[in-house]
Design a protein around this nucleic acid. Sequence first.
DNA 1: GCTTAAATGGACAACGTGTCCGCTTACTGA
DNA 2: TCAGTAAGCGGACACGTTGTCCATTTAAGC
Lengths: 189, 189
Amino acid sequence: MCPHTLVRMERADAARNRARILEAAAALFAARPPHEVTMDDIAKAAGVGRGTLYRRYPDRASIAVALLDEHERELQERLLRGDPPLGPGAPPAERLAAFYAAMVRLLEDHAHLVLGSEVGRTRFETGAYGFWRAHVRSLLVAAGTPSPDALVDTLLAPLAPEVYVYQRSDRGLGMDEIIEALTRLTRVL
Amino acid sequence: MCPHTLVRMERADAARNRARILEAAAALFAARPPHEVTMDDIAKAAGVGRGTLYRRYPDRASIAVALLDEHERELQERLLRGDPPLGPGAPPAERLAAFYAAMVRLLEDHAHLVLGSEVGRTRFETGAYGFWRAHVRSLLVAAGTPSPDALVDTLLAPLAPEVYVYQRSDRGLGMDEIIEALTRLTRVL
DNA sequence: GCTTAAATGGACAACGTGTCCGCTTACTGA
DNA sequence: TCAGTAAGCGGACACGTTGTCCATTTAAGC
């Protein structure tokens, strides 16, 4: 682009390789559990060397985060500026229910990504978690719920990918049943 | 014990080594994050060989589970036969609140164990999770809550060790605040 | 005591990780 | 158009962990 940009531009080959890595990783993660995919597998599939891979992504988790990023951004945008009940305008309880439903749809498509990639507490360190947290917290405050700080994480906990996958696969529950149960949680407001 | 027991008794040295392993593992897990403790560390600290360790415990997770087992059993006993509101007799909502409070106390002491030991979905495969699930489900049924199957896991999700540690450490919340937030969840019944 | 089968423990091979450094390639300014 | 330069590349390497295997030891039964 503009050669006079103050921030040094990313070199063309670097950009190409990043795209290749992300594409290859997405294919591999879709095919088998992320923790069974080695960094070497990804490098091989992307047609880049080991060092190139490590330069950008120090571990599997950071690759998974990068893959999730775009999908999460879209939902974040709708929460901020979309139509009610997801966006501003509807009563807090309805917005929370809409948020739950939207998150379930996100999980249905991408839970396998974040799952197993050395999750654990990693999930909370994602920028995305902070966003969901701030959003739900603002709904709690708007609803006048007392001491929202502890309740936020409590309400966000059922959206953990492990929980969702357990409900779907091991328990054989459908998306609708899960959404219904989550919607019931909005009574705490 | 009785030499005529049909089920072959565990040999004396085997029992001694199991005790050693559990004791050593508890000390190591208390000192640093479980995922930084190698199987070799445990074997060394317990004064047994690598093979001996693997014979009984195929991985770190199974050791952590064994360590948790006794503490969980005690709570399970109190849920089944203890005094109200934890045990039978009190209304479902109060029993659920009491269960939450008891679990928080358990987490406060032992969350570090299950945390990081290759958790993820492992948690659900524990026999203990099945027990908590059955207990809460029975409370939901007793309260006449419709379609309890999806709601159970939703209500159990905030008790995930990762969530608790995040609230305590990263968010700086106290046990009381967390218990209060969980108690609020009993409104969904 | 003697037999037998379980239990032990360390050596071993295979694997994944992360780093390092010589080589290559894309930008830049003349 | 063409060097000069710095960023980017990639494979070889060393390290640490894992899980298995089997010769040896040791407890229990007769």
